[in-house]
Each structure stands twice: as C-alpha cells, then as structure tokens.
C-alpha cells in the first residue's frame, strides 16, 4: 500500500469572485503500517484534505496516487475506489439508519456487491473487532450509548476492509471513558490489521501518545511533517501562534528548561515525563 499526495490544492467557489483557498499545495506520503496524526485548528483545511484521499472531493489541482494509480485521472472509477480508503467522519453515529446494528454494518459491504454470506461475515468480524457484544447485534442502534454507537459506525467502515483508515476527530463529544475506549480501539486496529491510520485530532496529548508521524496544517498549508517529538520540541512557539499547543508534559519540560534545569525538550508522553523528572532528580 502506498498513498502519495502531490501538490494538491483546493478552492471553495473556484473561479468566482468569492474564491478562497481551503487546501494550499499539500504534499505528503503515507507509508505501509504508518500511524499518522493530523492536527490543525478548525478551518485549517484538515477535513477538506482527508476527503480528497478517498475521492469524496474531486482534486482540482495536483495528483493523488494510490498503489501507483492516479485517482485524479478523469477516467478513474472513484466510486469503486472509495471503499479502499475508509473514512470515518466526525460524529459518525449520525449516519446510522438501519433498524438494527447488524444491518447497519452490512450497508457498506452490501454496496460493494458482495454475496450475502460474505457481507454478513464481514459485518460480524467488524462488530467483533470494535467490541460489540453478540446480544446487541439485533438491537436498534439508537438504543446504544454514545460510545457504542460510535463503535458501530466505525465497524460500518471497517466492514468494507479498507486498505487505509482515516478517522476525523473520532473522540469528539465523548466522555473520558468513551474517549479511552475509542483510542485503544484505534490502536488495536492498527496493530491487528496492520493498515496505515490517519488520526485527525485536536488533542495534542493523544497524537503524542499514538502517532508515529505528525502532519500540522495551518491556513490550508501543510506546515510540518515530522515525528511528533521533533514537531513539539522544535516548534512550540509557532504552534502556539497557530492557536495550537504542545502536550502538557512537553510544556512542563519547556517550563523547567526556562528555569535552567536540563530537561529534555523532546519528552512528550507521561512515561517520558516521569523518566525525565527522575533523571533530573538523580
């Protein structure tokens, strides 16, 4: 699997007086098995960008190549392609519509034109993967708790067996328990399915904890593409100017360094913070 985004730009109201740039000359590469965090303020173009990756938004400028095929080609079959890049939208539980949980998860694979048994097998596997108990399968999705609904919606995308999984703020609006459950589910999916994951998030602590590489967007531009460690260690002031922040642990490290204490600038998780403090006290 490889996904290459090459100089992609997107304008709202293109070629009119009200034209405005939503995505501005963005290039990056998604490698096999990677866990990518994508951060940026609301309106920075993240959502527009990820909708390009599965062809929901037609590329206006630049190319996107998936496994060597140019999906921006005019004769490329986008509808068939959409299932290969799974996109979980914000508040995905709002798309549930079937009478029971199981049928809802069947919707995606059924649209792929698979046989009935294959559809059901996939739905079953996906629901098991997100940890929905058998007895909930024939319940109405609307009777589930907020966190469960969201997991069912994620299963609806997983059942299409995507080769890349993109999640747009999957923890938005959930309570801490729901957030924990979704994040550990995503980590599990990444480990078990070995597919690349792009996590769009507002939480610096979450991307510090989970992502291996970090994309930062601002005003439609991709400003940083590096490991979270390097981004947070080197660009704290710039991030703050963009209305973003650094993980709390990293902030503590900076505060300590300002007082002349030799704390490592690149500690970003609790675990690293503990080690760094113990080292200082030694």
């Amino acid at each position: 699997m490889s996904l290459i985004v090459n100089h992609v730009s997107y304008y709202y109201n293109r070629n009119t007086a009200m034209q405005s740039k939503a995505v501005d000359d963005v290039s990056f590469v998604v490698q096999d098995g990677e866990f990518i965090g994508l951060i940026g303020q609301t309106g920075s173009g993240k959502s527009t960008l990820v909708q390009h990756l599965n062809g929901l938004i037609k590329t206006q400028e630049g190319q996107i190549c998936f496994n060597g095929e140019d999906i921006t080609d005019s004769d490329f079959d986008l509808r068939a392609f959409r299932s290969r890049v799974g996109l979980v939208f914000q508040y995905p539980e709002h798309q549930l519509f079937e009478e029971d949980v199981f049928s809802d998860v069947c919707f995606g694979p059924r649209n792929l034109g698979l046989t009935k048994s294959e559809v059901e097998l996939r739905a079953y596997e996906a629901l098991k993967q997100v940890g929905i108990a058998d007895e909930s399968f024939y319940q109405s999705p609307f009777d589930l708790s907020g966190g469960e609904k969201r997991r069912v919606a994620i299963a609806g995308v997983l059942a299409m067996k995507p080769e890349v999984l993109i999640l747009d703020e999957p923890t938005a609006g959930l309570d801490p328990r729901g957030r924990d459950e979704i994040l550990s589910l995503i980590r599990k999916l990444h480990d078990q399915n070995n597919i690349p994951i792009i996590l769009v998030s507002h939480s610096m602590d979450d991307v510090a904890e989970y992502a291996v590489s970090l994309l930062v967007m601002h005003d439609g531009k991709l400003v940083y593409d590096d490991s979270p460690r390097n981004v947070f260690a080197e660009h704290r002031t710039e991030l703050e100017e963009m209305g973003l922040s650094v993980p709390e642990v990293n902030k503590i490290m900076h505060l300590l360094r300002e007082k002349g204490i030799p704390a490592p600038a690149d500690a970003i998780t609790i675990k690293e913070g503990v080690e760094a403090c113990l080292e200082i006290l030694r």
Binding site: I252, I270, G273, L281
Partner: peptide
C-alpha cells in the same frame, strides 16, 4: 496531565505535594 505526572512520580518515590493542578504548579513543586 500535570496531576497525572505528579502522581506517577510520587508512586516512584518522589515527595511531591498532593493535588498539583497545572504545568506551572508542577514546575514550581519540582
């Protein structure tokens, strides 16, 4: 997060005070 970090350090034997709430408080205490 600052409270959590302090809690983990206390578990490792560092005598930090209880109920640290912010990065600033943590830094001062350390």
């Amino acid at each position: 997060q600052a409270t959590k970090l302090a809690y983990e350090l206390k578990k490792a034997g560092v005598p930090l005070p209880d109920g640290i709430l912010s990065a600033e408080e943590f830094t001062e205490a350390l």
